[in-house]
């Protein structure tokens, strides 16, 4: 498994250096920056900082800008990870290398592990650029509990990775990337507490919020960055996140295994 992971990491690194996916890179950064910019405009110019009385109650902080900035940055990181991992197999199919890959007795988990670790080198850079931009517009790091923030970020990566496996098998099955992934992304932006606390949402949306790993990941991340809390304060969120990661990892791996076969048949039927 590790040999496969290492080889895949290496292979992707070479391809990335030879042809850097600039337009993906740029569009991920820009969409994060636009979210940040939009929040800043609304807060500063339209509402002049006057908040709803319930906000601090729902959000756990009074700092609207930092709240939304973190949301925007982690959301765009989630989108990048989901996209990169889930598209990898379908890209192999489109470029005609899927069969060559399936011919080998390599471990699929190793393949995805190599993919995700390589892609983190790129998505992490996107994430940091957005954070720096947000910092310039007033994101506060005063209270940050650094170690727990990093740990939560790491758990979030695992959560997004598992979700990406599931997304990848759905996309491979329908042989569609555009519709499936965008529908997921607009839904995530709506239900996961990216630009407003989920407390404002009507109750029937709650199950959807609950299904997104981004929801607990964001809550825990905000606890540690904005309120400076340790891991203990985010226990329930981390439990929630691990449960979702575990569930999606199982369902996603099974899904990939099944759809691989279906895809090979579809190519030849």
């Amino acid at each position: 498994m590790l040999q496969t992971a290492k080889a895949t990491f290496h292979r992707n690194m070479i391809s990335m250096i030879r042809a850097y996916p600039w337009s993906f890179f740029l569009s991920h950064i820009l969409s994060g920056i636009y979210t940040v910019l939009f929040a800043y405009f609304t807060y500063t110019y339209v509402f002049e900082g006057v908040l709803d009385s319930r906000f601090s109650n729902y959000a756990g902080t009074n700092d609207y800008l930092s709240y939304v900035f973190l949301g925007g940055a982690l959301f765009s990181f989630a989108v990048s990870t989901l996209m990169n991992v889930s598209r990898s197999l379908i890209t192999e199919q489109r470029e005609g290398t899927l069969e060559a890959l399936l011919l080998t007795p390599s471990s699929r988990k190793g393949y995805f592990l190599g993919n995700v670790t390589q892609q983190i080198t790129r998505t992490l850079l996107e994430f940091l650029i957005i954070l720096i931009f947000a910092f310039l517009l007033g994101l506060q790091f005063k209270h940050i509990h650094f170690l727990s923030a990093i740990f939560i970020w790491f758990c979030a990566v695992i959560g997004f990775f598992s979700q990406a496996l599931l997304l990848g098998s759905v996309m491979l099955y329908f042989r569609d990337t555009y519709i499936t992934q965008n529908t997921l992304f607009v839904t995530m932006a709506f239900v996961s507490g990216v630009t407003f606390p989920i407390g404002y949402l009507p109750e029937w949306v709650a199950p959807l919020s609950w299904m997104m790993p981004l929801t607990p990941a964001l809550e825990a991340f905000r606890h540690s960055v904005l309120e400076g809390q340790g891991l203990a304060a985010s226990g329930s969120q981390l439990l929630h996140l691990s449960f979702l990661s575990f569930l999606y990892l199982i369902v996603g791996s099974l899904g990939i295994k099944k759809t691989e076969k279906i895809v090979v048949e579809k190519i030849f039927s």
Binding site: I14, S15, R18, T97, S106
Partner: peptide, 21 residues
């Protein structure tokens, strides 16, 4: 088909060789 166009010939063989362990 069945080759990575951005990799060199040697890199392709190396990648697949690794997948075979």
């Amino acid at each position: 088909r069945m080759l990575y166009w951005r990799l060199t010939g040697r890199e392709n063989l190396n990648y697949f060789g690794n997948l075979y362990g």
